[in-house]
Design a protein around this nucleic acid. Structure first.
Lengths: 326, 326
DNA sequence: TATTATGGTGAAAGCGATTTCAATGACAGG
DNA sequence: CCTGTCATTGAAATCGCTTTCACCATAATA
């Protein structure tokens, strides 16, 4: 492995000069030329490990996600990756498989060394999380949840759900049911349910508490919840779901119980999944710019890192949403 | 930041002793105890950057994927992540956005330093790829393509497509069309089409070359190809697709042209996408253990890394498949 | 002419671990 | 009592880069 000293010798300069050449310090034109040639000749590339040790910066960003194989998360990740690549950073990906404790674990692992910053695609935010985020040694940006005092990029789930609820209330006659997710997930659990309820209420068709079920983000959990619902209350005429994935499950359940094609007009979701859109022609749902949120969060983080000390960049950013098919 | 020297001083030993304690070298029981306490007291964690510089190993694995937001790839990635986490490595993720040149770029970037090994979720394998893989300084495992002389974990696309074709030929009467992908992707493009054709032929219902179209992996491309197909040859009665995603597009096209629900019995895919399965009740498709392929490839790679020098572990592994809904 | 900037330069001091190496003390065997 | 093992030990040398610092021309200013 050719190292800096070799290049320096070949170019007849000191390694300090080579380093300066590489990092844009004082260097005369002719030496710069000689160094450039020496580098080309030897195919030298500088050791990022040595550089990292010396400078304390790794050009690595830790990305913590709850589950990589989900459309929304993988779109967010794509956005993060785009920006990272463009700006000369690399992505250290940690998948927590929906386990909040592994989230904390990685938060720990990451700041105790290799990464310059962290993007946390958040689900549950416990007090422990808050503490961990607060005491984080490197800059951190959250995606998907709004946490006081932390930099975050998120969608207004309450408002979106409110609008969806209000719109649906006018369209549906008969009973509306709701399949939500754990309220520990503030955005997808609490906010969406609350907003939806408020929206229905505002339109004069309040949600019956007995018609609320809990799923676990998976298609199958949506299916099971819907089957139960239909068994317990056969007169339910519409099932709203907290995610498109669960909506797909509910759709299947409705198709099984009420006949094929029946579900499409009787289910709503959240997230505007591409498959769902294509295969059903479009159920009522909320479109979020997932990729955009990854992009924005990452830009914010890198701005703070690259910016001159004044970590002004870190703030909170609410992205818009769009009602679909209502 | 507390460093090794601090721990050493507190424990009244040399830093060499601490290092040995940490790495399992000669150390007396009482010193080990003192060191252990000193570490707990100070909350010391060792700098992976210094360690990396000294040892030349980063415990980082580079993972190159063509597109993170696709069900198959994200499932593979989940499998990779599982193993990596369990075995004390971290994942450096690079998303090439289907650009073969960026793949080479990352291959380069990765071996010129930070990573100990590479997992390449491969699509196109050009000669340049072959060369890059050959001359790769760190161990590398391919997923999804079978390349002579390289370690790889893959599925037998030809055989699977053959079986699917044969099975469908018996079931369908009328013309069968095929929407494939670029043949530069040997597995998903060339092998699947060839296998499918052979399967149809074997069953006495050969594929009309005029009924072959090319998509680009996306849902939309499947939709467009199917619309064209239906316009050009309205008597087509079945559309086989090289991926489930394109099949979803074809499904929509059929539904639009022939009426809702019509597509379900007239389209087949590859990959057994969960949404598709739930929403259609299951079209003919091939189930691959994507997660498993990630797991197997990563285990293979890490075995080679952790194993005693004899890099015996690196080999080629063909995983099974399963016909669905035929 | 005497100063003071100013653009360039290399030697050398780290960054925080790991690892070699020579030295130590204890202890069994002769 | 001497010698050869053997388990332990710490000093010191790296790993490959960045960055300070002292220093040197040369040009500009007083």
């Amino acid at each position: 492995m050719v190292k800096m000293k070799d290049v320096a010798e070949l170019a007849g300069v000191s390694s300090a000069a080579v380093s300066r050449y590489l990092n844009g310090g004082y260097i005369s034109a002719d030496k710069a030329e000689r160094i450039k040639q020496a580098i080309e000749l030897t195919g030298y590339v500088r050791s990022s490990q040595a550089r990292a040790l010396r400078t304390g910066s790794t050009k690595l960003i830790g990305v913590i996600v709850p589950k990589i194989n989900s459309e929304s998360v993988s779109r967010i990740t794509a956005g993060i990756g785009q920006v990272l690549g463009r700006r000369g950073y690399q992505m250290l990906l940690a998948n927590t498989d929906n386990a909040a404790d592994r989230e904390l674990e990685y938060l720990d692992l990451f700041q105790n060394h290799p990464v310059d910053g962290i993007v946390l695609v958040a689900t549950m935010i416990t007090d422990e999380h808050r503490r961990a985020i607060e005491s984080c040694r490197v800059p951190i940006v959250l995606i998907g949840q709004h946490v006081e005092g932390a930099a975050c990029v998120y969608h207004d789930d309450y408002e979106a759900a409110f609008e969806l609820g209000r719109a649906l209330a006018g369209r549906v006659d008969g009973k509306i049911a709701y399949i939500g997710v754990t309220e520990e997930d503030r955005a997808a659990g609490y906010d969406r349910r609350r907003g939806f309820e408020a929206g229905l209420r505002a339109a004069g068709n309040p949600l019956d508490a007995a018609l609320i079920r809990l799923g676990s983000f998976t298609l199958d959990s949506g299916y099971r919840a819907a089957r139960e619902l239909l068994a317990d209350a056969p007169d339910v005429s519409f099932i709203a779901c907290a995610t498109d994935t669960m909506a797909a499950g509910a759709l299947r359940a409705l198709d099984e119980v009420c006949g094929m094609g029946e579900g499409v007009r009787r289910v709503s979701g959240f997230g505007d999944n591409a498959f769902l859109r294509a295969l059903t022609g479009g159920i009522p749902t909320v479109h979020y710019g997932y990729l955009t949120s990854g992009v924005e969060a990452t830009n914010m983080l890198l701005d703070a890192l690259d910016g001159e000390e004044g970590e002004s960049g870190l703030r909170t950013l609410k992205l818009g949403h769009q009602l679909m098919n209502v």
